[in-house]
């Protein structure tokens, strides 16, 4: 797992290794992250389960439904909106 920008501060780490059961999807990974990092759950997903989170897997953009494989590098980054 790699965390970018504000997410890095919320997770308290820039990267970490996570073990998931085979067949897990990106959405399952997000649930694990919410449990591991309460600030993440409280500040990003407090009002909205479909919060503004962008996910990439091995450098490519993926949706929450995407199935994960052993060794995948998943990155989470918050989309910016200001100008």
């Amino acid at each position: 797992m790699r965390y970018f920008a504000r997410f890095r501060e919320l997770a308290g780490v820039d990267e970490e290794y996570l073990e998931l059961p085979s067949g897990s999807r990106v959405g399952d990974l997000i649930e694990i992250i919410k449990k591991r990092h309460p600030r993440f759950r409280n500040e990003v997903f407090a009002q909205n389960e479909e919060a503004d989170v962008n996910v990439s897997r091995n450098g490519s953009y993926v949706s929450f439904d995407e199935e994960l494989r052993d060794g995948d590098i998943v990155a989470l980054f918050p989309p910016a909106s200001g100008g």
Binding site: A5, D52, P78, A80, G82
Partner: peptide, 29 residues
Amino acid sequence: GAVEGMFGQVTTIIPGKTKCLREIFPKPL
């Protein structure tokens, strides 16, 4: 382009060649 704090993002949308912005950021922030 978009910015917040000390981070930001850039991508170039080319109709017919790339995804549209709404596909990349489907949830209106």
